[in-house]
């Protein structure tokens, strides 16, 4: 119970400071709109096949936009030695980590829930048919992105090449989760319900989340404290 309260206070702190400045949120949102625009030059946006790879496009936007938020997750604590203070406080590193993951999850979901309808409007994709399932899949995929991203943000926080290393490490790690999310999103947008083959990918996504959340909670002590 105490653990959850500590996580919550870290998450609340992160969200409060983000809502006051809106730096990462604005950057991430405008960046995702720019990528959506760029995609329209990469291929014919009016083509019928758009539905076949809409899931992929959407998750590429999410993954790229996420890097902007995740990069700052731990790096912003470097100023005024905030990270050292957080680690010296009675909050265990695992609670600190889960708090940051939750804050990042909320921020990423906010960006995605804005980008999703915009994507639907610009590319004439009907995402509203199975909105509930789509939100579920988005939430699962985003949790994976938040866990891996926050963990690697902690891992790279003291590196010289922090901003460069994070995407290089995060995207290959994310491949199984992104694969599953893309597959599921494409199916849902095409109007197929969550059944049969889709369940397999849902299981992959859930398993990925469970495994890496557990691993991160176990190893975040080692990463932050040594």
């Amino acid at each position: 119970m105490r653990f959850l309260r500590q996580s919550w206070s870290v998450a609340a702190k992160d969200l409060r400071s983000e809502i006051r400045t809106k730096e990462a949120l604005n950057a991430s949102l405008s960046f995702s709109l720019v990528i959506l625009l760029l995609f329209s030059f990469a291929f014919d946006p009016a083509a019928e096949q758009i539905r076949d790879f809409s899931g992929g496009l959407l998750w590429m936007v999410f993954a790229f936009a996420a890097a902007l938020i995740l990069n700052r997750s731990f790096a912003r604590e470097l100023e005024n030695d905030c990270l050292d203070m957080l680690l010296a406080s009675p909050v265990p590193p695992a609670a600190l980590f889960l708090g940051k993951v939750s804050a990042n999850f909320v921020l990423l979901m906010a960006v995605e829930l804005i980008a999703l309808p915009v994507f639907g409007i610009f590319y004439n994709v009907n995402w509203g048919m199975q909105a509930a399932s789509l939100v579920l899949v988005t939430a699962l995929g985003t949790w994976a992105l938040a866990v891996i991203g926050t963990m690697f943000s902690a891992l790279t926080v003291n590196l010289r090449l922090r901003e460069l290393m994070l995407p290089v490490l995060v995207y290959p790690m994310m491949i199984p989760a992104l694969m599953a999310s893309i597959q599921l999103t494409t199916d849902l947008i095409a109007g197929q319900p969550l059944a049969g083959d889709s369940f397999l990918w849902l299981r992959v996504l859930v398993a990925f989340n469970v495994i890496f959340t557990a691993l991160s909670v176990v190893f975040v002590d080692t990463v932050l404290l040594g």
């Binding site: 891992l155 790690m173 491949i175 199984p176 397999l200 990918w201 992959v204 691993l215 990463v223």
Partner: peptide, 23 residues
Amino acid sequence: RLSAVLNIFAAVNVVIVYKSIEW
């Protein structure tokens, strides 16, 4: 220390990636 943690994450991920082959 950091590369040990990264290695554990990557090795676990290899299994997941490899399993997804069969699907």
